[in-house]
Amino acid sequence: MKKAVVLTLFVGWIAIASVSRAAESNAENYLLHCSGCHGADGRGVPGVTPSLHGIAELLERPGGRAYLGRVPGVAQAALDDRKLAALLNWVLTEFSQHSADPPYSGKEMHRLRKNPLRDTVSGRPTQASTKE
């Protein structure tokens, strides 16, 4: 257990250390506003927070694009619309290697976050009929 924690600490540090200065501030905003719950590596905590890896798949589902802007952790982040849109675009490419097409704009984010999801379980777009 202890070893695992130490390792996490170390790996976490490396992840952070590699946030280069030039890398815009999306990486920094992620650390400040999201990583606490989803982890610096975006992998979430079982039973507590979902992983952000692969979430681009949600964009393919009906209502998925709106969902990503309305999920409470996103909608209520203490960032202005433009920075939040940039951060969400960054999260998509960073953890899903996919970008939204077109990318989220500040304007779209403004609209979506005004109406945060109340019930994320029933508000989450379900998968289309095909199984993986």
Partner: peptide, 24 residues
């Protein structure tokens, strides 16, 4: 997370330690 007009800030991060080994 949903409630409220006073939208709270959610600045949170996990337990990443101080990089004793990293000089970067």
């Amino acid at each position: 997370l949903v409630g409220g007009t006073a939208l709270p800030l959610l600045p949170v991060a996990r337990a990443y330690g101080e990089g004793k080994k990293s000089a970067r």
